[in-house]
């Protein structure tokens, strides 16, 4: 079991994606099939950008064993009042400034769900959000 941890800074879009790129490199090195990497990379990147866009700070933990890749993205931030609504395509609470940078199209959570086998979102308003993503390697 391989365990990696990355700190994600809120609000800094120039660094958004760094953690994902590092994890992606490791997935390639341990010979996870390219098709899986592609989907995990998409979900992971969306999750990382979400933290940058909405939270103050966050942490991405990656647990890999030969049968699955499990990602846990925890943040300290405003939380999500209505998860069901946030899961709908196009729903976004991103500010105009964030949208102008090309983020905040309301595709984050739905896109993550599409690209992993299991997804769990738990959130507490005013405290933060935890997103868990699991991909089984077949």
């Amino acid at each position: 079991m391989l365990n990696l941890e990355f700190v994600i800074e809120g609000g800094d879009f120039t660094k958004a994606g760094q953690a994902s790129s590092e994890v992606k490199q490791i997935l390639k090195q341990i010979n996870i099939p390219p098709a899986h990497i592609k989907r995990i990379a998409v979900a992971m990147y969306e999750a990382e950008v979400n933290v940058v866009a909405h939270a103050y700070k966050g942490k991405m933990s990656v647990f890999i064993d030969p049968s699955k890749v499990y990602l846990k993205i925890e943040d300290e931030g405003p939380g999500i009042p209505n998860i069901e609504q946030a899961m709908q395509e196009g729903f976004s609470t991103a500010t105009e400034a964030v949208r102008q940078m090309g983020f905040g199209a309301g595709m984050g959570l739905p896109n993550m769900k599409k690209n992993v086998d299991e997804m769990q979102v738990t959130s507490e308003v005013g405290k933060g959000t935890i997103v868990e993503l699991t991909t089984y390697i077949t």
């Binding site: 079991m1 391989l2 490199q25 490791i26 390639k28 090195q29 341990i30 010979n31 996870i32 390219p34 890999i64 064993d65 030969p66 390697i137």
Partner: peptide, 17 residues
């Protein structure tokens, strides 16, 4: 891919560690 450390995921993971 030139990146993979081993064909076998398990061995590759040990090498990564």
């Amino acid at each position: 891919s030139m990146l993979k450390l081993d064909e076998d995921i398990e061995i590759a993971m040990q090498k990564m560690e």
